[in-house]
Design a protein around this nucleic acid. Structure first.
Lengths: 198, 198, 198, 198
DNA sequence: TATGAATGAGAGTTCATTCAT
DNA sequence: GATGAATGAACTCTCATTCAT
């Protein structure tokens, strides 16, 4: 690990700590220590704490986005895509729980200053999901909706359930087990085309 | 306003600032100043910042819960109830935007320490929604689901869209206009019973 | 207890808490609560925290002084008096450990403002001891010294050993067992007349 | 002074203020200001106020201990050593009145939390004195006593008289003049071997 | 490029004291 | 006499950020 580029180590450390402790409870010193980097270096690579946070979130979103687009490219049926997307939200890439927590919490950020900066990022992601939905609509695979609004709805739905599923109690365990399929069903029913012909 | 009980003024000031600036960006001094109260008094009524925040959120949840239960008591059809609940989330009580922001953000709180304390509160609310859903299921008005999980999904869905709708751009305006009906439709389709006759 | 005069209950509560937690760690609220008295009443009887503390210490000194004078009145030999005084410092009146701690710590008070006020009190007590020593010197029962300085020395000696003896370890236990006799011996040897005749 | 290492300046400022105003009356800001250091730096070097205080006291004790051991190494008669030790307590190193006040008050600290931490330090010092006494006993130069208890007694004796000697009145002046010789005489008589020959 | 000592505004909280009832 | 709500200055400590080396 010590041989990876410094910026990478920093982003990884930031991701881990931001995901587990939240933005405010995580200090730049903590991140520097975990990344085996001096604070000086940390500030050499990232202008500020906000910027580091955004870099962390950006990287996560981009990975997710790539995955979602990959799913689309495979030409799966809409229902199957929704199921897989929900699974992704619960399992993360390679079972990356930190990623899941980080992204789930990003949608309703506490701090308005950060939110302003985050919004562009989130919107880009939501737009990508919306585009996927719009294409599916064009193909007649899902019903006509406001695509961006639907995208936000899906992401919010998944996010809150995911956050609750990260707790340590019986309910959380149940959510982890049932969450993906229930949410996929939820999403599919909400979006499937009306079967009025026939 | 200066004639209201002190504790009320404090909670109101807290609600306003927590909703608009978030928990961390809001100082106890800010709240005291807005409430026209000394910090000493503030701590006379609330043991800590956390407790004040919880008191603020608790009060909001209780008002919402009362409203939701009132809706149930009126014996409206499930679809109508969902529509009105979504409207409530957008408009708040008496068009209370602060309340909306506060509650929407509560579901994925950044701070793990606060979250632990919040969870009981949130769960209580979610359980109440879940019970409403369970009753509707028993009456055959919505399909069989995991009620608590469905409740979280609905709340997450509404929350994220609501937060986005609070921004100042064109998308936000669109969301404010379409949000209630789109989300109600979304929820209704996701939850309506299968039309298996035919 | 609730039937005792209020001022008494307050002084007793103050003694207990000041002795066990120290002056600064003890709040007026704590005292009020322990005495089952409102803070308002507390301030009705004592103008300030300092004054309450002084009242507490004063009462303890007066009790001790009365005891010491009683010892003198009995016409015991000087050696016996010293022994009993040392025992008093360890056991307190009726085994009152709080009293012992309170008085032992009074001699080197941390706070200069308090010290100024305490000094008169301490000096009065030391003067009384000094007078006892002076009388014993006149009677030829102890050697000629500076009586006040000797009094301070005896009190300091006893105080520090006493404070150490209040801890919870093996050394403290040893001190509690050996302290009175060792210190009495110490004092007696330091003060006994020269046996140069014979 | 501004060219000395920062940690030194902080410890010196702390010593001065703790000695003159006591622990609680001295704020971290006061120390920072006197040391011409930011509070940030102050906390860079010392984790907390307690730790700074302990560092200050520790340094003083170590200097004293070194002096006491130096006295031993010179092979002076026990009586002479006692006299010089008492002089040291009054004059301090280089007439350092702050040091004297600081150490004298350390033996019966008001605050129980601090006391716990101080005790180890004090005990170490008392043990060193005790060892000196034990060696003198072995050499037949002083009588058999409980060495640690005797050490505490000597230190308490000297401490209280010293604190009283720091006041501004006639008695204090008398104590400053007579203290060393009187206390040395006191200690010597208390500890000298029995002259049982003849 | 890399370091970490230095900064200081600002955080939450405490607590002796007052005073209208 | 008795109450306790109200006060606000002062406390210790944190932390993102800077900059000389």
């Amino acid at each position: 690990m010590a041989t990876e580029p410094m910026a990478d180590r920093i982003v990884q450390a930031g991701k881990k700590l931001f995901a587990r402790q939240g933005f405010h409870a995580t200090g730049m010193r903590d991140i520097a220590k975990l990344a085996h980097v001096s604070i000086g270096s940390l500030y050499h690579y990232f202008r500020s704490k906000d910027e580091l946070f955004l870099a962390v979130v950006r990287r996560e979103f981009e990975e997710r986005l790539a995955q979602a687009r990959e799913l689309m490219r495979q030409g799966l049926p809409a229902q199957e895509i929704l199921r897989r997307v929900m699974e992704l939200h619960f399992a993360g890439i390679h079972g990356d729980a930190d990623s899941v927590q980080l992204l789930s919490r990003a949608w309703a950020p506490e701090d308005p200053a950060l939110w302003k900066k985050l919004r562009l990022l989130l919107e880009e992601y939501a737009q990508a999901i919306a585009q996927i939905l719009a294409e599916a609509t064009s193909a007649g695979r899902i019903r006509v909706t406001h695509p961006l609004l639907a995208a936000y709805a899906l992401l919010g739905m998944a996010g809150v359930v995911t956050v609750r599923a990260a707790a340590q109690d019986a309910v959380a365990e149940e959510f982890r087990r049932l969450g993906p399929s229930e949410l996929a069903e939820f999403a599919w029913r909400a979006l499937r085309p009306d079967q009025e012909e026939a």
